[in-house]
Nucleic acid binder design. Structure first.
Lengths: 208, 208
DNA sequence: TAATATATTGAATGAAAGTTCAACCAATAT
DNA sequence: ATATTGGTTGAACTTTCATTCAATATATTA
């Protein structure tokens, strides 16, 4: 044998990560069709052919990117749901953290925009479409459940909870796109607008 | 001479319109890079070569599409601004009409999504980028002005008016995408959520 | 009817980009 | 030291697509 299994495994993972990082960056800013395998190879500092040693096709790279994006997003929202605090607090935290994270973390910003651009096009590969329809509703449903909980304890405004979730994610989405496309003179909106949109009480209680 | 100037003009315009209609439909659902000139020609029922009799390049078709989209959008928002009614009423009308129009008019839905997808990609042609940066802020600024007016007369909630505008358009945008991608079992959100987000009074006054 | 100008076609062209592959390199085990 | 396994390269192959173009059709005027 040549290298040990573990070493090869490790190399593979490091290489794959370099491809992923480049792909995430490029797919999020240029979209699937405008991103070329060559671009990814250059940014990941490897020969074009090597990408195909790790991925069967461009479609597969994209699939993996989107898969990771959903994993990250769904885990975050699932974690929020599991927290042992009242719905109102969950909602405040979600708003505050999402706004902050979009502002300071390129990575999360990219995650949001990859999902957004995949959702926006009917031309993406079939496999990716399937992934999308398995995942796109998850975070909507979870937020809807949290809003519903808050309506029962009286902290959340009225209306169909799923509609509230659509509004919620629309804001977050729009914010990520806005932030990404106006790098200069951009001020992140304060969370107050969203607190007011979804919550009945408007004071900044225990806002930690 | 052959045909009269006017007849040629008219034919040109009809043909151009067929190209535009096809292009709007395809660019809005698939995006710029996934849309092929062949697709446009097929949908517009003409030979591929004929597209080039009317447009210099694919970029130019896209430019024209986006140009029309901004024209439509900016006119609508400018019209709203000009109305001789209080800010609160303008805001109610905008919310109500935008939600309704996104729901029933494919055309307007496409307009919104074309602007959104152009905004989302850094890979679009240079000429289109220029058009985008000339136009993308117009409707934001107008809505911000309306919000500011409403803040002065006490009908609109506090906060930076431009941030309110960002929130406003994020929502409209998100709604258009949501509507376009979940044709089945989709219920349009009621305007109430947005009334509550931006306006201090929450009753449905003279809501015509 | 012939001449002319424009619209229209679809095949040809050429460049770009996804994918494959034969050769080369690096690291370990024998 | 050599053989072996798997990583790595970049050029070759192939397909797709924007764009061009020579040929054809159509409608108007003289």
């Amino acid at each position: 044998m040549a290298r040990t299994k573990e070493q090869n495994e490790k190399m593979r993972n490091e290489r794959k990560k370099m491809i992923m990082d480049a792909a995430v960056h490029l797919f999020s800013s240029k979209g699937f069709f405008a991103t070329k395998i060559k671009d990814i190879a250059v940014e990941a500092q490897m020969a074009q052919g090597l990408v195909y040693h790790y991925y069967k096709s461009k479609d597969d790279v994209y699939y993996d990117v989107l898969h990771n994006a959903f994993e990250k997003m769904n885990e975050a929202v699932e974690g929020l749901k599991q927290l042992d605090v009242p719905a109102e607090k969950k909602i405040r935290m979600a708003i505050r953290e999402l706004i902050k994270t979009i502002d300071i973390s390129d990575n999360f910003n990219q995650t949001v925009r990859i999902i957004a651009s995949a959702t926006n096009s009917t031309a993406i590969p079939e496999k990716v479409k399937a992934l999308l329809s398995e995942n796109r509703d998850i975070s909507y449903r979870i937020m809807a459940a949290i809003f519903e909980e808050g309506q029962r304890d009286g902290s959340v405004v009225g209306g169909d909870p799923y509609e509230l979730a659509v509004a919620f994610w629309s804001f977050i989405n729009g914010l990520a796109v806005y932030k990404a496309t106006r790098l200069e003179n951009f001020r992140m909106p304060s969370p107050e607008i969203l607190y007011h949109t979804f919550l009945k009480t408007n004071e900044a209680i225990s806002d930690t």
